[in-house]
């Protein structure tokens, strides 16, 4: 390697403690926002993993782009409402087209997802470029997210009470909604994910549950989009749940582990970003991935190290 690229020295205090004490003004809302995104995605992701729909998140997050662009062109401004609605509609349209292709052509789900997300994303890029004069869309934001910017907006004040930046409030409400849906619909979600046949006979509206889940997915992905970008949302959806499956086999505990994973990866990720001076959202995902790898190696249930040990034992 060339000498000019050297790893900065690691200062544990500056990376892991200082952001939350001395620099709380800068990182406080970043932390809250990051946690809300990661926790909402992680909780919902558990169910996507159960239903083998992990990559639907990928499709929805990519289709958000044309939704945003079209909403911008139609409404003529960056108003939160129309942009949000446009992205949501695009996400739902993507899931509907995927379902349609899957049921009405000989293609399987993988091909359907691959075609739909790339087409919609390509349309989004072309529109964004073609109307570049009118749209101010940063390609970096689409991929990296703007976590720092989102959390640095001026806080909303109600009367004399200063609350939080608007994006944080939005994301926190989405997280609350996800939690509420899981608490209220836990049984229906569980049964229809595990065995649609039994669920139907027990009076659960399986298609309705699926549609609701897709709606919730679109909502979460769209709200997380501006913070973490199109691709990293997928990591946020899958990593916490995947880590949890390595640690426990019981769904209720998986929720807890997913939330812990979300919190820990935000903490470590901010540390990583401070240390290396790199983008925030990717750093949080890298930290989450590192936690996953740690669970993979050392997990109590079928961790790699345990498997290795078992094998030697059987052999001897």
């Amino acid at each position: 390697m060339t000498p000019e690229w050297v790893l900065p020295a690691f200062d544990a205090h500056a990376a892991l403690v200082a952001p939350w004490t001395e620099h709380r003004d800068t990182f406080g809302w970043v932390g809250v926002m990051g946690f809300c995104v990661a926790a909402a995605c992680g909780l919902l992701g558990n169910y996507l993993l159960l239903r083998r729909m992990a990559l639907m998140g990928d499709a929805v997050s990519h289709s958000v782009l044309p939704g945003l662009v079209i909403a911008f062109l139609v409404s003529g401004g960056r108003g939160t409402g129309p942009m949000f609605a446009g992205a949501l509609v695009a996400g739902l349209v993507a899931t509907l087209i995927i379902d349609l292709l899957q049921s009405r052509t000989p293609l399987k789900q993988d091909a359907a997802i691959g075609i739909v997300f790339s087409t919609l994303f390509a349309i989004g890029v072309v529109l964004a470029v073609a109307f570049a004069g009118q749209i101010d869309l940063d390609p970096d934001c689409v991929l990296n997210g703007e976590l720092l910017f989102v959390a640095l907006e001026p806080s909303v004040a109600v009367g004399s009470l200063t609350l939080a930046p608007p994006a944080v409030i939005r994301m926190a409400s989405v997280l609350a909604l996800v939690i509420a849906v899981i608490v209220v619909g836990y049984r229906a979600l569980l049964v229809s994910s595990f065995d649609p046949g039994i669920a139907r006979s027990a009076g659960v509206h399986v298609r309705g549950v699926r549609l609701g889940l897709m709606l919730l997915l679109s909502l979460v992905v769209v709200s997380a989009f501006e913070a973490v970008g199109a691709v990293l949302v997928v990591a946020m959806l899958i990593l916490p749940g995947a880590t949890a499956t390595l640690i426990t086999e019981r769904l209720p505990r998986m929720h807890g582990i997913a939330v812990v994973h979300a919190g820990a990866s935000v903490w470590l990720g901010v540390g990583l970003a401070v240390w290396l001076d790199c983008s925030l959202a990717p750093a949080i995902v890298v930290a989450g991935a590192a936690l996953f790898v740690a669970a993979w190696l050392m997990g109590p249930r079928g961790g790699l190290l345990i498997q290795l040990w078992e094998r030697n034992r059987v052999q001897s």
Binding site: W5, L49, R52, M53, A54, L55, G57, D58, D110, L143, N144, V231, L232, V233, V234, A235, M236, L237, I238, L239, G241, A242, T245, L246, L272, L276, D277, C278, S279, A281, P282, A283, V285, V286, G288, A289, F292, W296, G302, L304, Q307
Partner: peptide, 28 residues
């Protein structure tokens, strides 16, 4: 092969995690 994760989850996980590492390096 070594976990209970299904292929779609493994794909999505690797896809986004590697991508995040790449983005970090690019921003550096």
């Amino acid at each position: 092969r070594t976990t209970r994760l299904k292929e779609d989850a493994a794909l999505g996980l690797v896809l986004a995690s590697f991508f995040a590492v790449g983005l970090c390096l690019l921003s550096l």
